[in-house]
Write a protein that binds this DNA or RNA. Structure first.
Lengths: 193, 193, 193, 193
DNA sequence: CATGAATGAGCCTTCATTCAT
DNA sequence: GATGAATGAAGGCTCATTCAT
C-alpha cells in the first residue's frame, strides 16, 4: 500500500501543480489533495523539488512507452508521424494536467530541462527524429532536412497547439482535426502546388 | 530621469528574471541590478507581478513594431513569412534574456498568458496569421489550412528552436541557417516530391 | 525479556544522547541504536523527556551504590575522599557516554536539575558532604569549612576535569594521576608551606 | 542605531536563552523580547545558532577584559586568585542570565565548547593558569601542582557554586562569603594543620 | 507486545512590501 | 523622489507521538 500512497501523492501533485503552478503550490495542498498528512509527503519524496522531478521521471515513462508501442504498429514513416501527432494530442486531452505540467513547468527552469528531466524529454523528442531518419532512408523524406531540426519543428508545432488548447478554458478547438492539419503542413507544406 | 529609472528597472528585471526565473528572483536583486534601492522599485511598479507584466506589455511593443516594419518592406507573403522567421531568430540572438523570458516565463502562468500579456502575444502571433491570409487571397497558400492553425504551427516551430538554442550553453546551432530550414519545411513540406 | 528491551533502549539512549546531545537526538535514532522499532520506545517510556529522566534515575543508582560500597571499605575520611575522586574518574573513563550525559545534559535544564534528577544527583553530592562531616567530627578536617561548600568545591573540581577530558578528542590527560593532584590541592592547599 | 538593534537582540537572546534554554527558545520570542520583528533578527544574525555564538564571542570579551583589569590591580598571586573568584561571583550575581548561559548552554554542545567559543573560554581559564604560574615563580605556590590542573580545579569549584546558586530559586547562599571559603580551601586545603 | 507508517503541530527562515528618514 | 532597514505573513520541513496491523 506504500506504493499506492506514493502514487497518490504523485497524481495529486500533477493536479495541484497544473492548477496553481509549481511555485505557487503548497506542499500542504498536494498532501490534502492526495488525502494524506503533510509529513507523509516527506516519507516518499526528499522535498518539493523532488516531487516535480519524480513526476517527469516516472510519469513520462509510460507515456514514452505507449508512444513507442503505437509507433511500432505502423509501417510507413508517414503513418508513424501521423500516429505520433495523433497520440500526443490524445494524451493532452486524456491527461490535460500532466500535459500542462510538461508544457508549462518543464520550461520553467533550466535545471529541469537540462539536467533531471532532460533525458526523458530528449528521449521523447528523439522518437520523432528516429522516424524521420527512417523516412529519409526509405526515400520518403527529403535528404536536405536535418532530423534534429525536423523533430523540433514538429514537436514545437504540436506543443504550441497543445499549449493553447490546454490553457484555453473553452477548449473549442477540435484537436483530432487539428492534428491532421499539422501533419499536412509539415509534410506537404503550406504552399499551393 | 524618472523615466530612465523605470526603464533601468525593467531592463534589469529582464536580465534577472531570465537568469534566475521569475519566482526565484528577489525584488532586491532586480533593484541592485538596476542600481537603485529596493523601495524605489515600488515607486514605479505596483508589485513584483507588475514588473513582469510591464516587461511583456512594454518590451513587446518595439519588438512587434520592428517586426511589422520589416514585414511591410516585403511584397510577397512568402518573403514575409521568411522575414518573420529570420527576424524572430535575430531578436532571440540579440536579446537572449528577453527571448528567454518570453519563452520560459510567459508559459508559466495561466494568468499571464490569458489576461495581461495575452493581448501583446496574440498580436505578435496574429502577424503570422495576417501574412498567411494575404497569401491565401493571393492564391499562394493553400485554402484548406486554417490561418489560426498555421500561425501556431509556425510560431511553435520557431519557438521550439529558439527555446532549445537559448537554453543550450554551447549555442552551437546556427540560427540563421536553421531559419531557412524551418521556412522550407512549413512551406514546402518534408516529403520528397 | 521486556526488562531487557527497556534496558536496551536506556543504554542506547545514553550513547545517542551523549553523541548528539539530547535535543538534537531523534527518538527514532535511539530506537534504531537499541534495535527496536520507534513505537516500542513508547511502550517503556512516557516520552522523550522520560527517557532522559529514567537514565538519571536508574543509571545513577548502581553508580551511587558502587561508590558507597567502595567508600565504606575505607576507614579514614581522607582515604574516603581519595576513593571518591578516584572512583568517579574511573567511572568517567569506563562509562564516558554516561559521564558526558551527567556532565553536559544534566545542566541543560532547570527542570532536570531541580526536580526529577535532583534527588539522585544530590544524593551523590551528599556522599562527599557526609565524608567531610565525618572528618570534621574526627578532627581531621577544619571546622570552619561548611560541608555544603566543600562538597561543591570538590565535585566542581572533579567534574571540570572530567568534562575537559570527556570533551577532548585526544584524552591525553592521565586521569589517575590527575585525581591525586585534585585530592592534594583540596586537602593540602596550593600554598607553599 | 543599527548597532543598537543588534545589541538589543543579543541582550534579549541572553535573557530568553537563559530562561528557556537555547533549544526550547523560539527566534520569535527573542525578537519580541528585543522589541523587533522576527525578520529583523536575520538582518543581524545568520541564524539561530549564530546568535548563541555571537553571545559567547562578543559578551565574553568585556567580561574577560574587566577580569584582567581587576587582576592587574593586585600585586600578589594570592590576592589575584582571591580577586578572580570574587570578581567571577560578582559577575554571576550581576549578570545571572549571562552566567547561566555560560554555565548551562556552553556545555551543551561539543561544537560550542571546542570550536567557536572555545577560544574565549580557554582565554578565561588561562587567566587562572597565568596567575598560578606567577605564584610558582614567586615561590608562593607549590611547584608540584600543574597550572593546568589548578586552573580546572579552581574554575570547577567556582563554577559549581555558581551553577548551584544560579539554578536555585531562593538564592539563599551568600556568594561573597562563599568566595572566601573557596579561596581558603584551594589555597590552604581542607585538612586541619 | 511489537511494529513503523502516518500524523500534524511547530518552528526556522525567506522575502515581498512598507515607511520613517 | 529615493532610500534600505524593518516588518510579519507564509511555507517548507522536522520529528515527537500515535495507532492500525
Amino acid at each position: 500500500m506504500a506504493k499506492g500512497k506514493r502514487e497518490a501523492i504523485l497524481k495529486a501533485a500533477v493536479r495541484v501543480f497544473a492548477r496553481e503552478g509549481f511555485f505557487k503550490s503548497r506542499v500542504e495542498a498536494v498532501a490534502k489533495e492526495a488525502g494524506v498528512a503533510t509529513g507523509t509527503t516527506y516519507l516518499y519524496f526528499e522535498n518539493k523539488d523532488d516531487i516535480l522531478i519524480s513526476i517527469f521521471d516516472e510519469e513520462m515513462t509510460p507515456i514514452i512507452d505507449d508512444m513507442k508501442r503505437e509507433i511500432a504498429e505502423q509501417k510507413s514513416a508517414v503513418d508513424k508521424i501521423r500516429t505520433f501527432i495523433r497520440r500526443h494530442l490524445v494524451m493532452v486531452q486524456e491527461q490535460p494536467d500532466m500535459a500542462q505540467l510538461l508544457i508549462v513547468e518543464l520550461r520553467q527552469s533550466n535545471k529541469f530541462l537540462h539536467t533531471y528531466s532532460g533525458t526523458k524529454f530528449k528521449e521523447y523528442l528523439n522518437i520523432i527524429a528516429s522516424i524521420f531518419e527512417q523516412g529519409q532512408q526509405e526515400g520518403v523524406f527529403r535528404q536536405d532536412i536535418k532530423p534534429t531540426i525536423f523533430k523540433q519543428v514538429m514537436f514545437g508545432a504540436v506543443d504550441q497547439i497543445s499549449t493553447n488548447w490546454a490553457l484555453s478554458r473553452t477548449k473549442k478547438l477540435d484537436l483530432n482535426e487539428t492534428g491532421e492539419q499539422i501533419a499536412d503542413i509539415i509534410m506537404n507544406g503550406a504552399l499551393q502546388k
